[in-house]
Nucleic acid binder design. Structure first.
Length: 309
DNA sequence: ATCCAGGTCGGTC
DNA sequence: GACCGACATGGA
């Protein structure tokens, strides 16, 4: 009913930022695995070359590099302030405080040990929503390909270090595209969903900004009104874009993990799994989910023999 | 070649 | 409500 607003100290810590120029800062971080975080299936727009991650965040081209307890941030344009990137990276979050809230069972602890430094980002709602509408029954690699095609064909050019990069297209821009143009981006049967969602957002029928002020259940209800958005995608957006800490996306990986290691939920359907997880994994269940998800993916088929699938 | 991928939708029973 | 096939595309 009400908003979950427990004031965890992890949400109140300060980010320590060293300003090096109007285009470069170094953010002090503790337990932050940048590569794992940017490539853990929560965001699909980052490009990796030689230890450098480049992308566009809130309309600004940015380069990120991990360097011993620091994240080096470089932009192409002068910046007055940097909260757009510290907020995105959630560098103020104290990971220890979150991990302490996880249940001390074997599966959870194995995931924590295996994925040290994995973080949740705080993405822009529209890009996150659109990306996950594209995600259904697609591999992460393919989702990235479609996102890249959308940027190239519909994005806005943004100056980068040596030329122009393309942003993720706005809902307004996609709303004026045709289904055929969308299908040319290899999104297949998801094209009409993304197109209708773009028109709903662009036309103000769905106000993504207003969801910040709702309870998690109210916000989920709004997202579920959008075409192509079911419980799983809604929870991804609630967790990765709005930061609702108990949102718990149940996909095929998580369903397998939960059923294997938490036998009390073996007969549960997806909704019941989500409800079980929300109470069992505690106030940061969504974070726990990302650890379990990433750990399972790292192990690929190793923990699941074919007969168990 | 065959199965499956960070699911959802619209039909059935 | 719950079960089930269709839906594009391309990795593995």
């Amino acid at each position: 009913m009400g908003v979950s607003s427990t004031p965890f100290k992890s949400l109140n810590a300060e980010t320590c930022v060293e300003l090096r120029s109007t285009r470069e800062i170094a953010i002090s971080v503790c337990e932050y695995d940048l590569a794992t975080t940017l490539d853990s299936g929560q965001a699909f727009g980052w490009q990796h070359h030689d230890g450098e991650w480049t992308g566009i965040v809130h309309g600004r081209w940015v380069s990120l590099k991990a360097s011993q307890n620091r994240i080096l941030v470089r932009t192409a344009a002068n910046q007055r302030e940097w909260s757009w990137i510290t907020g995105y990276l959630q560098t103020h979050v104290c990971l220890r405080d979150i991990i302490e809230t996880f249940p001390p069972d074997v599966a959870m602890q194995a995931a924590v040990t295996s994925c040290r430094g994995l973080r949740l980002l705080r993405q822009e709602p529209w890009e996150c929503l659109a990306s996950f509408i594209l995600s259904s029954t697609k591999q992460i690699k393919q989702i990235k390909q479609v996102v890249q095609l959308l940027k190239e064909r519909f994005g806005e050019p943004i100056p980068n270090a040596s030329g122009l990069a393309m942003s993720f297209p706005s809902a307004q821009r996609l709303a004026s595209a045709t289904e055929s143009e969308m299908r040319d981006c290899k999104m297949g049967f998801r094209a009409p969903y993304l197109l209708a969602a773009a028109r709903s957002v662009a036309g103000g029928i769905c106000d993504l900004e207003s969801l910040h002020h709702l309870s998690v259940n109210e916000a989920r209800g709004e997202l579920l009104k959008l075409p192509g958005v079911g419980p799983k995608i809604a929870d991804c957006v609630l967790l990765f874009a709005y930061g609702f800490p108990t949102a718990f996306p149940v996909d095929v990986w998580i369903a397998k993990v939960i059923r294997k290691y938490y036998p009390e939920s073996r007969r549960a359907n997806a909704r019941e799994l989500r409800e079980f997880a929300g109470s069992y994994f505690g106030p940061h269940a969504g974070y726990a989910q990302q650890y379990l998800f990433h750990h399972a993916r790292k192990l690929e088929g190793k923990i699941f023999s074919p007969s168990e699938a």
